[in-house]
Design a protein around this nucleic acid. Structure first.
Lengths: 205, 205, 205, 205
DNA sequence: AATGAATGAGCATTCATTCAT
DNA sequence: TATGAATGAATGCTCATTCAT
């Protein structure tokens, strides 16, 4: 494929590529030094472009973080819905969600750091993100649980909202610990560990 | 000779009082605007002292956050240990931990905000805090679980480390959701909701 | 071969047209936001061309202002000389000058704003402009006054240089006030008001 | 006089002195390079203080210019009113105004440059300043002229507003020319030159 | 000639920290 | 101990200008 802009399609790709490059660079920089400690100049240098160029693709430093989150969340939810559509049974669906959650973040440490750490650094961010993607994500889990109760697979004396938060919280903690851990271990297998407790409970029967 | 330096005892009291005042002011300010958006001058004004005075009690803005965390965590763990000492049985101990966790944070929204949000705003902070108090806290939970397994109360096919993280993550998520929620509800009762799942599992028996 | 370069004649016309368009756009933009607050991009957009195209016709933003001034002043002086050539008598000549001054600026508010405001925004500009057109303009007034003194129409105890400045200053102030005024009134008639005073003081009794 | 801050009075003086120093430095810098080309750092260096200190006394670069103008105009009008109070007769009053106008600006070239050049560099500034000091100044001249008409000293067929603008415009032009002139000559004497013409045209015959 | 994406120097302002009093 | 004026390094963003196409 030539580097020329012979077609509109290609030109578009190039623009998208640069936006993408900036986003990728930003994640790397944010993950390394934290959002507030990262300079726009750092991102530009990491992306191999001039400082000003960043502002041709993003309105502000803030917008970079938002864009990153929006896109990542959108991708994640789209992928999740697609995979869930092919699965029967609430239990198996939850398993898929948990696995996907940890697979995705476990596959990209920098992305995970930004998700787990940077996006939580301010109530403002959290509020906005919570209202956006996080909320939708929790909803999917909640509905799957409610479905499972209707299907008679899950206990009916539990509130789906609470149960959803429990599962999400547990998974989230796995990711955070994985990021902070000095040791290097695969994150994805933790899904089954969580589910073993989640599905079966802790008490001896 | 000034009143405050007449005796060591008195001086200490005064110092502690002012240190305390600054710390309290800092939590309020951090909770309201976030660590990075809070100015040392804001804290000073909130505490009713001059800007420079802050530096007689703390080496830097950063140290204020650290001190706050250290003290809060220390208090919390001390209180926890004390209460656990009076309890027999791993299950009841875990229940107490969960309740204490949510009671404490639920009783002081500003403190909770700083804990849930501000302390997570940078990998640097998280790493440091994880190595300090969080680690010890998780350890206590882990050991209680291990004890429960020995006592034959808990399933033995589960790794205590993982189970501890699951419980902690679930509780943590309850707090975060409570903070971000527009609605006002008591946090403490969520402990039992979490434990119902944690102890019993989700599946229909 | 492009249309515009087929013949020199045509090309020139096109070039002149676009140069003109840029100049016109610049006046509009400068008048609205001030020279320093106007972006080259604003001018380009107003002119309906790309940013870079501006630089095919002008070496810099600064040069646009200069070009504008040079051309406007040139036009104005040429027109003035032409009209003066048809008039006998120093008094009538001065009247014509004053009228032309206010008619011209009164007919184009944007041009007037740039003349009265933007061109005075820096000593550098003023120095340059003074050395160029302003100087020539004042000279014409001065000479007309000197002629009037020789003709015995004007008092001979006044220095033409000073008298010229007085007339110019008075007219200039009329324009400035007209621009800043919230009320909308015709500028040209002010010429006679000024002359009523001016001649009263200058004429030989 | 000691450099200490033993008394409140002295302390006040010091503060006022620094504000004054910044203002003085700003005038010098603005006069030399123009408002838009002057950096706040230039002003700070000229005043012998740190950049940030400027902001302890002024909210913004813009505010420095405003403060300067407000104070200068206030001073000037106060002085003018004081002197006018001691004078009988509209004609002599106008003479005093004209003289004061040129004496003041003629005594401080830098201040004059800022007044004549920088304050006119934008419609925004001019509008604001016109509404403030300039307006009051013109009013004083206008009223003096109206008084003169009532007293039978000045022709009654002239509109005071217009006549006031003429005088102001003529004086203003003297100042501008003086600033731009390469030659160095005293400004104050020009007042009488202007008045010779002005009164010739305005006085009742 | 025309485009408009890319450049990068430039700058007002903020704020943690210091220090003379 | 306490003050708060002073410091000056640090940085997000703008915009005149260039240049590959």
């Amino acid at each position: 494929m030539s580097r020329s802009t012979r077609t509109n399609g290609e030109a578009r790709v190039f623009v998208a590529d640069k936006r993408e490059a900036i986003l990728r660079a930003a994640i790397k920089v944010f993950a390394g030094k934290g959002y507030f400690n990262s300079k726009v100049a750092d991102i530009a240098k990491e992306a191999g472009i001039a400082d000003g160029t960043v502002y041709l693709y993003f309105k502000s430093k803030d917008e970079i973080l938002h864009s990153f989150f929006d896109r990542a969340m959108e991708d994640f939810i789209a992928e999740g819905k697609k995979q869930l559509a092919e699965i029967e049974g609430a239990q198996e669906k939850l398993r898929r969600i948990a696995q996907l959650h940890l697979e995705r973040l476990g596959a990209d440490r920098e992305l995970a750091i930004v998700f787990q750490v940077e996006l939580r650094g301010s109530t403002k961010f959290m509020q906005e993100f919570s209202a956006a993607g996080f909320g939708e994500y929790l909803d999917i889990i909640r509905e799957t649980i409610a479905d499972g109760q209707k299907q008679g697979v899950f206990r009916k004396d539990l509130k789906p909202v609470v149960v959803a938060k429990i599962l999400y919280g547990a998974l989230d903690e796995m990711v955070t610990n994985w990021i902070l851990s000095q040791k290097s271990y695969p994150l994805a297998p933790m899904a089954d560990e969580v589910l073993k407790v989640f599905f079966g409970g802790v008490l001896q029967k």
